[in-house]
C-alpha cells in the first residue's frame, strides 16, 4: 500500500507542473492544514509528518531539504508513548508508528499544542517551551532546528502562516 502511494506521488510529481503538484501536496496535507488552523489534537505529529512526506514527494525544491540528510527523530509524549519516528536515509523520509533504535534526537512533548507551538507558532518560542517544560529534547539540537525549518517551510508552502 505504501509503495503504491509512493509510486502515485512520484508519477504526479513527474507529470504535473510545479504549481499543480503544490496544490496536490496541499490537498494531501489537509490533515496538517486542519491541525494548524484548528485545535491541535493527538494527530498533530502524524499530520505534520504526513504533510512533509507528501511535500517531499511532490515538491522538488522541498525535496532538496533531505538529499544526503541522514537522521532519525523519535517524537513521543511525556508518558513515553511514541507518536512517530521520522527516519531520513539520505534520499527519502520514512514515517513509522513505533520507536526505532538509535535515534539522533528524541523530542518529548507534553501535548500536541505545545509541540505545535514549539515548531510552528507565529511567535515561535522554543525558549518558553523549554522553560515551561512543555517540550524536552534529548540529543543534538541542530537536528531540531532543521526539523523546525522544514515544518515552518511546509506551513508557508501550504499558505498557513
Amino acid at each position: 500500500m505504501k509503495a503504491i502511494k509512493q509510486f502515485i506521488y512520484r508519477m504526479l510529481a513527474y507529470i504535473l507542473p510545479r504549481s499543480a503538484a503544490a496544490m496536490v501536496a496541499r490537498w494531501l496535507s489537509r490533515d496538517f492544514v486542519q491541525e494548524v488552523e484548528g485545535a491541535a489534537t493527538d494527530l498533530f505529529v502524524e499530520a505534520l509528518l504526513g504533510g512533509m512526506e507528501a511535500a517531499l514527494w511532490l515538491c522538488r525544491d522541498y525535496r532538496r531539504n533531505i538529499l544526503g540528510f541522514k537522521a532519525r527523530y523519535v517524537i513521543e509524549s511525556e508518558r513515553g508513548e511514541v507518536a512517530a519516528t521520522a527516519d531520513f536515509d539520505g534520499k527519502h523520509m520514512h514515517v513509522h508508528r513505533s520507536a526505532l533504535s538509535s535515534p539522533t534526537v528524541r523530542i518529548r512533548f507534553k501535548n500536541a499544542a505545545a509541540l505545535r507551538s514549539f515548531l510552528l507558532s507565529e511567535d515561535q518560542d522554543i525558549l518558553d517551551s523549554v522553560l515551561a517544560d512543555q517540550v524536552e529534547v534529548e540529543g543534538n539540537l541542530n537536528y531540531v532546528y532543521k526539523l523546525g525549518y522544514m515544518a515552518k517551510n511546509l506551513q508557508l508552502r501550504m499558505k498557513l502562516a
Partner: peptide
Amino acid sequence: LTLWPELDTVSHRGANPYYLSERDAQILNE
C-alpha cells in the same frame, strides 16, 4: 544554526528583524 527555523520568517519577525533574501536563505539551508 539556531536561526535555521527562522530562515523564512526572520525578515518579518516582530523583534529586531534581519533582512535575508530567499536566495541567501537557500544558501544557508542547503
